[in-house]
Design a protein around this nucleic acid. Structure first.
Length: 842
RNA sequence: GCGAAAGUGGCGGAAUUGGCAGACGCACCAGACUUAGGAUCUGGCGGGUAAAACCGUGGGGGUUCGAGUCCCCCCUUUCGCACCA
C-alpha cells in the first residue's frame, strides 16, 4: 500500500518526541553516570545550584523554568571543560505533610517520601542532569542530625538561647512564625490569616550578632541582583541614633524612675514636648494597673494597631493616643513633658518609647496638632547668611541640613555637629549614649509542630536546661504520632519521646517537644551536597574549600529575604567555628521571574494551572524546557501560552527533519561555495551569540532565536526538488554537528538523538562546546549607511577590511554637500565598520 | 507616602556601546504540495499610500548630524517597604 511507503519515509524525518525521549530516558536510567559528567578535581570547579524544592507532590512550571536555566548552564559549563557540581535535594520537613497526614490519615514521612519519589521521576523524565549520588533529603535523620549538631554548637557559643517573648502566632498553622514569615501582618502561607501575638518560651538564634556583617558584606555581593541586596538592607534596617533617659516625675512601682527613648535626631531634643510610648510598653502596663479607664483606652490603641497590620496594604492608620497624666523630665533642660501612649509607636523597634518633636518630625507633627501639644522649633534652615535667617520654617521641618536654635549651649551648631556633641554630653552625664539599632530581630526557630527537626534539648528538674550530648545524636523523630493542629506540639503527647534521663544527674528529664523552623534545614543544605554520605561530620572542610562559594545560585525572588539571609548567617557562624573559609555562601545569585497564565498566578481555584506532566506528554520534555527559556528572558514574568510551546515543538521538529534528511546523504548534488560561506558565517555568528548569552546576559530567549535563525538559513540551502541540502558535504557535516552542540543545553534529548544519528561516537556530555572563529563569522562586505541632515540617503557597500573610500553614492549625486565627520569638514571619508556616515548640509 | 524596575505591532518579545526599530516566535493572510490537512514548504505581515512621501517605541520638552537607548518634567503598570522614631 502506498500509505505504508509514506509512513516509512516519514518515520525517519518526523520528530517523535515521545519515542526519542523514552529511548534516551531508558539509557540514562541504566547508566546514572550519564547524568553527571565525570568528576575531575584537577579541572576548574563550577558549582551551579538551583533552590531545592519542597516535595509538595508534583513539580509545577516554576520548577521547570528554574531547573531548565540551571541545567542549561550546567551542561554549557561541562561542555566548556569545567568540573561541574549540579546536585538536587528535598526540603522535606514542613507543615503541609502534617496537613496531608490529617486529611489522608497517612504518616507525614510516607506522604513526603512518596512525593519525593514522584517528583524525582518527573525531574528525570524532564532530563535534568543532576548528580543523584549526592541527593540530600532534609527529613531523614542522616541529614537532620547535623541540624541538631549545629544547634548544640550554637548553644555552646551562646548563639542559641531560650527566652519568653511575644511571638507571631498563626492560628491556621497552629505554630509560631519568625518575623520573616509575617507578611503584611499575615501568615506567609495563609494570606487570609491575621497573625496573632502570644507570649511563649522560645528558642532563638542570635542572628543579630551578625547584623552588622550581614549588612556590610552585602557590598561584596556584586553579582547579586540589586533588588535583593536592597531588600536585605531594608530588612536589616540599621539606624544610628542615641538612647536617652528621661526621669519620671515620680518613680513608678516595679518599673523604676526613668524611661529610655531611642532617637535618630538627638539634635532636636530641646524641641521634645512629649514622650510617646507603645501601648504594650511595660511602663504603660504599670500606669494602667490602677487605672481601668487608661487600661481600656490603651487596649483600644492596641486593637487599632492590630487592625493596621490586618489591613496591611492600606497604609498608615489614623494616629490616636491617650495622655497618661504623668510627666518626665528632659535631661538636657529639665523641662517637664507629658507622657502619652500612642498607636503609632511600635514596641518591637528601638525601646518602644520615643521623644516627640512635633516641629521636626512629620508623625509627631500630625499627632501634636491633633492633641494640641506644644510645638517648639529648634532647627532652622541653614542659609549661611544671618540676615536671611528664617525664623518660621514651614513645619514640620525635618531636614538634617539645618542649624540648631533654642537649644541652650548647643544653639548655633549644625545638626550634624549637634548630634555628635549632644550624644557625648549625654554619655558624659550618664543619661544616654550614641547607639545603633537594627530592625532585624533574633531568629525564633521553635515550632510547635511534629514534622521538623527535634530540638536536642532537655529540661531536668535539678539541672535546668541540658543539651543532649553530641554522642546521643540524632534525636530521632518518633513515628506513629497522632497529629492534630491544636493543643501544642504533637511530640508533647508521645511520652516515650518526652520522658528521658538527664545526662548530668541521671534523674528524669523532659525533652524539648518543639521542632526547628524548616529554614534551618535550607540554611546549609548546599554544603552537604559536597559530601552527602559523611556520617562523622556535616561535611569535610577540605572538600568545601574546593567547591565553595557556590558559583551560581538560581531560584525565585520570594526567597530574597528569608532563606538568603539565614543562609548567609549560617555560613558566617560556620566560618567562625572554623568549618568553612568562605564569608558568603553564594557568589552569583539569579532570581527568575514567575510563570503566570492569563495574567494571573497559576492556581487551582482559577483553573489556569499548567502541569509539567501534561506538557511533557503533549509536546515532550525538550519542548517544555525550551519554551520556558524561549518565551522571555529568565528574569521576566512569563505568561504561559500553549501556542508558544507548539512553536518550539515545531522548531525542534524542523531541526530533527533537517538533520534526519541530511545525515546520511552526505554527498550533495550541487555543492555551492557561496552558500557554504554564508552558512559558516551564520554558524559562527550563532556560536558567538549563544556563548555570549551564557557568559553575560543570560537572555536565553535570544540564544534560542539565534539557533532558529541558523536553522532557517539551513532550510534555505535545501534543494526544492530533492529537499536535500546543497551544501558541500564537509560544511554540511560541520554545521550539523555544531548545531547539535548548540542545542544540547536547551533540548538535551533531541541533541543526543541527533548526535547519534550523525554517527558521533563520543558522549555528547563530554563533547566540547563549539569554538567561535571570528574569521569565519566576519562579513565579506559591509554596508555603511549614509545620512544627509539626519535622513537616510544611501549606503556604501564596501569590502569589510576597507579603510577609506570616497563619496560616490548615487543618492548623493545631486546634493550640493560639504562632507563632515565628527563636526569637521573632510574630503576623504574614513570608514568605520558598523558606524554610520553623516553628511551635513550647511 | 518612600524605593526599585518597566512601558516597543493583534500577542510574547528583539535591538549588548546612541547608528537601517520590530530579530525570533505566536496569531493572521496568500501560494505550493495534496483525496484531505489542525502536517509540511514558500512568501507576506507597524500605520499610511495605487506606489511613494510621510507618521510611528506611554505623553511633553531637551542634548545630538542622528535618540527605543542619554537628560528633565509628567502619566501608567508591576514589585518591594510601609508609622522603624
Amino acid at each position: 500500500m502506498p500509505q505504508e511507503d509514506i509512513t516509512t519515509v516519514a518515520h525517519d524525518e518526523r520528530y517523535d518526541a515521545q519515542r526519542i525521549e523514552s529511548k534516551w530516558f531508558e539509557r540514562w536510567q541504566q547508566d546514572p553516570e550519564l547524568y553527571a559528567a565525570e568528576r575531575d578535581s584537577t579541572k576548574q570547579k563550577y558549582y551551579v545550584l538551583e533552590m531545592l524544592p519542597y516535595p509538595s507532590g508534583a513539580l509545577h512550571m516554576g520548577h521547570v523554568r528554574n531547573y531548565s536555566i540551571g541545567d542549561a548552564l550546567a551542561r554549557y559549563m561541562w561542555m566548556n571543560g569545567y568540573n561541574v557540581l549540579h546536585p538536587m535535594g528535598w526540603d522535606s520537613f514542613g507543615l503541609p505533610a502534617e496537613n496531608a497526614a490529617i486529611a489522608n490519615n497517612t504518616p507525614p514521612k510516607d506522604w513526603t517520601l512518596r512525593n519525593i519519589a514522584n517528583m524525582k521521576a518527573q525531574m528525570k523524565r524532564l532530563g535534568f542532569a543532576y548528580d543523584w549520588s549526592r541527593e540530600v533529603t532534609t527529613c531523614l535523620p542522616d541529614y537532620y542530625r547535623w541540624n541538631q549538631w549545629f544547634f548544640l554548637k550554637l548553644y555552646e557559643k551562646g548563639l542559641a538561647y531560650r527566652k519568653k517573648s511575644r511571638v507571631n502566632w498563626c492560628p491556621k498553622c497552629a505554630t509560631v512564625l519568625a518575623n520573616e514569615q509575617v507578611v503584611g501582618g499575615h501568615c506567609w502561607r495563609h494570606e487570609d490569616t491575621v497573625v496573632e501575638q502570644r507570649e511563649l518560651e522560645q528558642w532563638f538564634l542570635r542572628i543579630t550578632q551578625y547584623a552588622d556583617e550581614l549588612l556590610r558584606d552585602l557590598e561584596k555581593l556584586k553579582e547579586w541582583p540589586e533588588k535583593v541586596r536592597t531588600m536585605q538592607r531594608n530588612w536589616i534596617g540599621r539606624s544610628e541614633g542615641a538612647l536617652v533617659d528621661f526621669k519620671l516625675d515620680s518613680p513608678s512601682g516595679s518599673f523604676g524612675d526613668k524611661i529610655q527613648v531611642f532617637t535618630t535626631r538627638i539634635d532636636t531634643i530641646y524641641g521634645a514636648t512629649s514622650l510617646q510610648l507603645a501601648p504594650q510598653h511595660p511602663l504603660v502596663v504599670d500606669f494602667a494597673a490602677g487605672n481601668p479607664d487608661l487600661r481600656a483606652k490603651v487596649d483600644q490603641l492596641i486593637s487599632e494597631q492590630g487592625k493596621a497590620r490586618e489591613v496591611g496594604d492600606i497604609g498608615e492608620i489614623e494616629k490616636h493616643g491617650v495622655n497618661t497624666g504623668r510627666y518626665a523630665l528632659n535631661p538636657f533642660n529639665n523641662s517637664k513633658v507629658p507622657i502619652w501612649v500612642a498607636n503609632y509607636i511600635l514596641m518591637d523597634y528601638g525601646t518602644g518609647a520615643i521623644m516627640s518633636v512635633p516641629a521636626h518630625d512629620e508623625r509627631d507633627f500630625d499627632f501634636a496638632k491633633k492633641y494640641k501639644i506644644d510645638i517648639r522649633i529648634v532647627i532652622l534652615p541653614n542659609s549661611g547668611d544671618p540676615e536671611e535667617t528664617v525664623t518660621e520654617p514651614p513645619l514640620p521641618f525635618t531636614t538634617m541640613d539645618g542649624m540648631v536654635v533654642n537649644s541652650g549651649p548647643f544653639s548655633g551648631l549644625s545638626c550634624e555637629e549637634a548630634v555628635k556633641k549632644m550624644s557625648e554630653y549625654a554619655e558624659s552625664h550618664g543619661f544616654g549614649k550614641a547607639t545603633v539599632t537594627f530592625r532585624l530581630k533574633d531568629w525564633g526557630i521553635s515550632r510547635q509542630r511534629y514534622w521538623g527537626t527535634p530540638i536536642p534539648m532537655l529540661y531536668c528538674e535539678n539541672d535546668g536546661i541540658v543539651p543532649v550530648p553530641e554522642s546521643e545524636l540524632p534525636v530521632v523523630l518518633p513515628e506513629n504520632v497522632d497529629i492534630t493542629l491544636s493543643g501544642g506540639s504533637p511530640l508533647g503527647r508521645v511520652s516515650s519521646f518526652v520522658n528521658t534521663m538527664c545526662p548530668k544527674c541521671g534523674g528524669p528529664a523532659r525533652r524539648e517537644t518543639d521542632t526547628m523552623d524548616t529554614f534551618v534545614d535550607s540554611s546549609w543544605y548546599f554544603y552537604r551536597y559536597t559530601d552527602s554520605q559523611n556520617n562523622t561530620a556535616p561535611f569535610d572542610s577540605g572538600t568545601i574549600d574546593y567547591w565553595f562559594p557556590i558559583d551560581q545560585y538560581i531560584g525565585g525572588v520570594e526567597h530574597a529575604i528569608l532563606h538568603l539571609i539565614y543562609s548567609r548567617f549560617w555560613t558566617k557562624f560556620m566560618r567562625d567555628m572554623g568549618l568553612v573559609k568562605n564569608d558568603e555562601p553564594v557568589e552569583r545569585l539569579f532570581t527568575q521571574g514567575m510563570i503566570i497564565k492569563n495574567g494571573a498566578k497559576m492556581s487551582k481555584s482559577l483553573g489556569n494551572v499548567v502541569s509539567p506532566d501534561d506538557m511533557v506528554e503533549r509536546y515532550g520534555a525538550d519542548s517544555a524546557r525550551m519554551y520556558t527559556l524561549f518565551a522571555t528572558s529568565p528574569e521576566s514574568e512569563l505568561d504561559w501560552q500553549d501556542a508558544g510551546i507548539e512553536g518550539v515543538q515545531r522548531f525542534l521538529s524542523r531541526v530533527h527533519r533537517f538533520v534526519a534528511r541530511n545525515a546520511q546523504n552526505a554527498s550533495s548534488e550541487r555543492p555551492d561555495g557561496g552558500t557554504a560561506r554564508q552558512i559558516q558565517r551564520k554558524l559562527h555568528q550563532t556560536i558567538k551569540r549563544v556563548s555570549d548569552d551564557f557568559q553575560g546576559r543570560w537572555h536565553f530567549n535570544t540564544s534560542v532565536a539565534a539557533i532558529m535563525e541558523l536553522v532557517n538559513a539551513l532550510y534555505a540551502t535545501e534543494d526544492k526538488e530533492t529537499s536535500g541540502s546543497r551544501l558541500p558535504a564537509d560544511v554540511l557535516r560541520d554545521v550539523q554537528r555544531n548545531l547539535v552542540l548548540l542545542l544540547a543545553p536547551f533540548a538535551p534529548y533531541l541533541a543526543h538523538e541527533l548526535w547519534e544519528m550523525l554517527g558521533e561516537k563520543q558522549s555528547l556530555l563530554r563533547a566540547a562546546w563549539p569554538k567561535y572563529d571570528p574569521a569565519l563569522a566576519k562579513e565579506d562586505e559591509i554596508e555603511i549607511p549614509v545620512q544627509v541632515n539626519g535622513k537616510l540617503r544611501g549606503r556604501f557597500v564596501v569590502p569589510a577590511d576597507a579603510e577609506e573610500s570616497t563619496v560616490k553614492a548615487n543618492a548623493l549625486a545631486d546634493e550640493n554637500v560639504k562632507v563632515y565627520i565628527a563636526g569637521k569638514q573632510v574630503v576623504k571619508i574614513v570608514l568605520v565598520p558598523g558606524k554610520l556616515i553623516n553628511i551635513v548640509v550647511r
